[in-house]
Design a protein around this nucleic acid. Structure first.
Length: 117
DNA sequence: GGTTTGACCCTAA
DNA sequence: ATTAGGGCCAAAC
């Protein structure tokens, strides 16, 4: 299984209503410096894929797409459809990481609570 | 094989 | 606080 496939598998584990960062995905794959590769992998997702690519954002909590086949606006809409509050400042979409960041270490160790705040 | 390419990230001004 | 600049490394050429 190549790097891209591992990325897809991991991204599928991001729960509905949560987000992860590129660097976080890379770190979970034991290559903490390969954040850009995560982006490259998601860039060339096959069409009609079921991977929730929209749940992956950058380390500052921003959507990092300008305009491709999937514009930033679509990603923002998909996130909001999951109940995530998406702010916008100067054309940049912002997500509160303190509130929505996925914490994979916590998910199985505490009965599924994992609240922050 | 070597080179180029990024949906990134961190550091230093 | 904001912004350049450089490092990163798997994949595609």
């Amino acid at each position: 299984m190549n790097f891209s496939e591992q990325v897809y598998v991991l991204v599928e584990r991001i729960p509905h209503g949560r987000v992860a960062t590129y660097g976080q995905i890379a770190a979970l794959l034991h290559t903490p410096r390969a954040a850009r590769m995560v982006g490259v992998a998601l860039r060339s997702l096959p069409d009609g894929t079921v991977v929730p690519w929209h749940r992956v954002i950058n380390s500052r909590g921003e959507i990092s797409i300008e305009n491709m086949e999937h514009p930033a606006e679509e990603q923002a809409n998909r996130l909001m459809a999951e109940g995530i509050r998406v702010g916008t400042s100067n054309g940049v979409y912002l997500i509160d990481l303190d509130m929505y960041l996925w914490m994979p270490n916590t998910e199985l160790t505490n009965g599924g609570e994992s609240r922050t705040v």
